[in-house]
Amino acid sequence: MSRDVLCIPRKHLVFLKIHKAASSTVLNILYRYGEARNMTLALPFYNHLGCPKLFKATYVKDFDKNSSKEYNILCNHMKFNLPEVKKVMPRQSSYFTILRNPNKLAESACSYFHTMTPAFREAKSLDRLLSRPDTFYKLSRTKDHYARNLMWFDLGQDPNAQDDPDYVNNTLLELERTFHLVMLAEYFNELLVLLREALCWQMEDMVYIKLNVPQSSSVSGLPPTTSSKLQEWNSLGWILDRHFNSSFWQRVAHYGQSGQDAARRLLPPETPPPTLGHLPPREGGYQCCADGFGADEILRRFLMVEQEHMVCSITPLLLVSSKIKKSSRMRV
Rank of each mutant, 00 (worst) to 15 (best):
L191Q: 14
R3D: 10
V26S: 08
V88M: 05
S228P: 02
L211A: 01
A57N: 01
L222F: 07
N169Q: 12
E35Y: 11
L222H: 08
W233H: 15
G259F: 06
P159E: 00
Y46E: 08
A147S: 11
N101E: 13
S321V: 07
P102N: 05
L43I: 12
V311G: 13
L267P: 01
M151D: 00
L195T: 05
A106Y: 00
S111Q: 12
S220D: 05
F96A: 03
D296T: 12
N170M: 11
T226E: 12
S247H: 10
T226D: 13
P9S: 11
I298S: 05
F248W: 06
I324A: 06
S247E: 04
K61Q: 10
C51N: 06
A290W: 03
Y167M: 10
P133A: 08
F136N: 06
L105E: 05
K69Q: 15
L240N: 06
K11V: 14
N212H: 14
H145R: 02
M330Y: 12
V168R: 01
I314L: 11
P9A: 13
T171Q: 13
P133C: 09
F96N: 00
L318Y: 10
F136R: 09
D291E: 11
M151W: 00
K325R: 15
W201Q: 04
N149Q: 14
N169F: 03
P102W: 10
G34S: 12
A185K: 02
H77W: 07
E107H: 09
F45Q: 11
K53W: 10
L267W: 09
T40H: 14
V168M: 06
A161M: 12
C289T: 04
T25D: 02
R37K: 14
